[in-house]
């Protein structure tokens, strides 16, 4: 059985007023193993977890997150962003085994 991994998703309003603070919700599939658990054969399951998440709007970085092994499997994340212009939100997740994923969402500011 393979473990589901990746498939990042972003949910946020597609339209906002200038200056409005909007909530962005996101989800990604990831095992987030701690390196502290053993499998049935008694072998340590290696740590495999997302270490950083970044959010940029139209290429400008505005939030950086560092995560530990204590973030739950399939990490859910919500945060806020100030809507100032129309453009593209891009999120990037990176794990400790040199894998990374990105997702984008469009915002129209009236």
């Amino acid at each position: 059985m393979t473990v589901a991994i990746g498939n990042p998703m972003i949910r946020m309003p597609s339209q906002a007023k200038n200056g409005e603070i909007i909530e962005v919700r996101s989800l990604i599939m990831h095992p987030m193993t701690t390196g502290l658990q053993k499998d049935k054969a008694g072998k340590i399951i290696p740590a495999h977890f997302i270490q950083t998440v970044t959010a940029e709007f139209d290429g400008k970085l505005f939030m950086t997150i560092d995560w530990s092994i204590a973030i739950s499997t399939n990490p859910y994340l919500a945060y806020k962003m100030r809507a100032q212009k129309s453009g593209t939100l891009k999120m990037t997740w990176k794990d400790n085994q040199e894998q990374s994923w990105t997702a984008t969402a469009q915002l129209t500011v009236a």
């Binding site: 701690t34 709007f57 970085l61 939030m63 560092d66 919500a78 945060y79 962003m81």
Partner: peptide, 28 residues
């Protein structure tokens, strides 16, 4: 989390563009 094997769970860095220092996450 005071007595987790590694107590520091997360670090968030915000900017004025965040609008508010706010987050939701799920932890072990």
């Amino acid at each position: 989390v005071d007595h987790n094997p590694s107590p520091l769970v997360s670090k968030y860095q915000f900017t004025p563009e965040s609008g508010q220092a706010y987050f939701q996450e799920r932890i072990k």
